[in-house]
C-alpha cells in the first residue's frame, strides 16, 4: 500500500476545486448527484447475493476475504492482553494451517496501537479509530489531537467518523473541512501519511441519496477509504449501502482518475455474506477493487466463520467453533 502522500493533487481532482470552494457550490454539487433508485439498488444487491460460488473459486474467495479482514475490537472492556491475543491471531489466523494468510489489519482504539504494533510489527497494518469515535461529538481540537496521538503511536491507518449531526443539518462544508483537517493530522513528520478511512455511519444517514452524497464529499476531501459504519449502530453495513458506495468509488475514478477503497463494517458475520460482498465488488466496481488495498471487511466474528469454511474445504468435513479462539 502506498504510504506517501501525493505531492500534487491528481489532475482530475483539480477540476473539482471550485465545487469545494464554498458551502453553496458544494451543496449544489452534492444535491445535483443523481438520486439512488432505492428499490432498484436493493433488488440489484439481492440479485448479486444469489450467485453460487463453489470449489476452487470459493477457496480463492475465502482466502481473499481473510486477507481483507480488519480484525476489530472496539470495546470498553478491551485489555492489553486481549488486544495482544487478537494481534497474534491477525498474524496467524489458523495456527493449524501455515498456508492460511494473515489478515489486512488490526483495528483498535488509539491508546492500544502500541500493544498491537509490538506483536505484529510491519507484517500487518494497525488501524486506530479516532475523532471521538463512535459518536464524533467533540470539538475539532480534541478530534485532531486524538488523531495525532494515534499517528504518533504508530497507527498505519486512521478510521475517523464524520459529524453526522452537521451532515444531516446540511453543513457540508463543515464536514468537508473536518475531513481535510483530519487528513492533515495524519501526516507524519517524515512527510508520509497514515491512510485515512472515513466512517459515515450509514445507519444514521437515513437515505441512500445521503450515502452517495457523503461518499462524494469524503472522496473530494481526500479520504483513502470510505467506510460504512462504526459497528455501534444498527443497521450497520448492508449490501445495498455498500453497493451505493461501490458505485460512488467507481464513478469517482472515472471522473478523476483517483481510486478510493471501500470498507463495509459491522454485521458481516458469515463467510457466505463475505462472498456476497466480493461478488458485488467484482460486478459493481470491478476486479481492481478485489484487493486488500482497496476493499476491507471491518469484522471480528467473521474471521472464525471464514476459518471454519476454509477448514471444511481442506478437510472435507464440517468444522466447529470449538476449534477456533473465542474473541
Amino acid at each position: 500500500m502506498p504510504t506517501t502522500a501525493p505531492t500534487d493533487p491528481a489532475p482530475g481532482l483539480t477540476a473539482y476545486s471550485e465545487v469545494t470552494a464554498s458551502e453553496a457550490s458544494l451543496r449544489r454539487f452534492l444535491h445535483g448527484l443523481p438520486g439512488v433508485d432505492q428499490v432498484g439498488a436493493e433488488a440489484r444487491a439481492a440479485g448479486l447475493g444469489t450467485r453460487s460460488i463453489k470449489t476452487t473459486a470459493k477457496a480463492w474467495a475465502l482466502d481473499l476475504a481473510i486477507r481483507m479482514v480488519d480484525l476489530t475490537t472496539l470495546e470498553g472492556q478491551d485489555t492489553p492482553g486481549k488486544v495482544r491475543a487478537l494481534a497474534s491471531k491477525a498474524l496467524r489466523p489458523d495456527p493449524a494451517d501455515p498456508s492460511c494468510p494473515s489478515v489486512a489489519a488490526v483495528c483498535v482504539y488509539g491508546d492500544l496501537v502500541g500493544e498491537v504494533k509490538a506483536i505484529v510489527g510491519d507484517q500487518v497494518n494497525v488501524a486506530a479509530v479516532a475523532t471521538a469515535f463512535p459518536s464524533g461529538r467533540a470539538s475539532m481540537a480534541v478530534k485532531l489531537a486524538d488523531t495525532r496521538d494515534a499517528v504518533a503511536g504508530g497507527a498505519d491507518e486512521i478510521d475517523m467518523v464524520i459529524d453526522r449531526g452537521a451532515f444531516l443539518a446540511g453543513h457540508y462544508l463543515q464536514v468537508f473541512e473536518e475531513i481535510v483537517a483530519t487528513r492533515e493530522a495524519c501526516v507524519r513528520p517524515d512527510g508520509s501519511h497514515a491512510h485515512l478511512k472515513v466512517i459515515f455511519e450509514t445507519g444514521e444517514l437515513q437515505t441512500y441519496d445521503n450515502v452517495r452524497r457523503a461518499s462524494w464529499l469524503a472522496m473530494l476531501a481526500g479520504a483513502d477509504f470510505i467506510k460504512t459504519s462504526t459497528g455501534k449502530v444498527q443497521p450497520a453495513a448492508t449490501l445495498p449501502v455498500t453497493l451505493v458506495m461501490l458505485e460512488a468509488v467507481r464513478d469517482f475514478r472515472e471522473a478523476t482518475g483517483v481510486q478510493i477503497g471501500v470498507k463495509p463494517a459491522g454485521g458481516i458475520r458469515t463467510a457466505k455474506d463475505a462472498i456476497k460482498y466480493l461478488v458485488m465488488v467484482n460486478e459493481v466496481a470491478g476486479d481492481d477493487w478485489l484487493d486488500p488495498d482497496w476493499f476491507r471487511f471491518g469484522a471480528s466474528t467473521l474471521l472464525n466463520d471464514l476459518l471454519m469454511q476454509r477448514t471444511k474445504m481442506t478437510t472435507g468435513r464440517y468444522s466447529g467453533p470449538d476449534y477456533f479462539t473465542l474473541d
Binding site: G316, R317, Y318, S319, G320, P321, D322, Y323
Partner: peptide
C-alpha cells in the same frame, strides 16, 4: 456428514 462433523 453427521459422524465427521466436528461440532457434533
Amino acid at each position: 456428514w453427521l459422524a465427521a462433523h466436528m461440532d457434533v
